[in-house]
Write a protein that binds this DNA or RNA. Structure first.
Length: 154
DNA sequence: GCCAACGTTGGC
DNA sequence: GCCAACGTTGGC
């Protein structure tokens, strides 16, 4: 089983939206590297949900992959701001897996807390200039982050 | 709103 | 294939 982290802007789609929807197709990713990670997701993989452009930004919850990536419908929708004129049904460019809500963490783990945690060194999210909205996370780092949430904030 | 650190586009 | 110009992400 693999573990991942995906970013979302809470103003656009928050962990509470996912909790309400139960399952959602993770659409609108328009970066090839991130897309390749989405396509690599397998049913059962666990996914940390991260709020970006938020106050504060940080990890807020856990989801699970319940359907492998299929063509992202928003790329074919002329009315969508994510419409891609170069994508065709025969050769889709963008893909989205389905994610199922698992639970919210008992508290938000802010970015600076992640940075200050020495055992999280090497976490892709923390690397210089990392802007990828989908990144792999080692199972060890995944567990450390979940463990952090069960401890009181410092 | 600023801006660093990217990624993408397109002329050549 | 190079690279300048432009667009985007996301922390601050």
């Amino acid at each position: 089983m693999a573990t991942w982290l995906v970013k979302t802007e809470p103003d656009v789609y928050s962990i509470d939206d996912l909790a309400r929807d139960k399952v959602t197709d993770w659409t609108c990713v328009r970066n090839y590297q991130a897309r390749n990670f989405l396509k690599a997701m397998a049913v059962g993989d666990e996914v940390l949900i991260y709020h970006s452009n938020a106050e504060p930004s940080g990890v807020v919850g856990i989801a699970r992959v319940c359907q492998v990536a299929s063509p992202d419908p928003t790329q074919f929708d002329k009315k969508s701001e994510y419409f891609d004129p170069k994508a065709t049904k025969d050769a889709p460019r963008w893909f989205c897996p389905d994610l199922k809500f698992v639970r919210k963490l008992s508290r938000l783990i802010a970015l600076d807390e992640l940075r200050n945690c020495t055992s999280l060194a090497g976490l892709a999210l923390l690397q210089r200039g990392s802007r990828l909205s989908v990144v792999p996370v080692s199972e060890k780092h995944f567990d450390i982050i979940v463990e952090l949430s069960s401890k009181a904030s410092r």
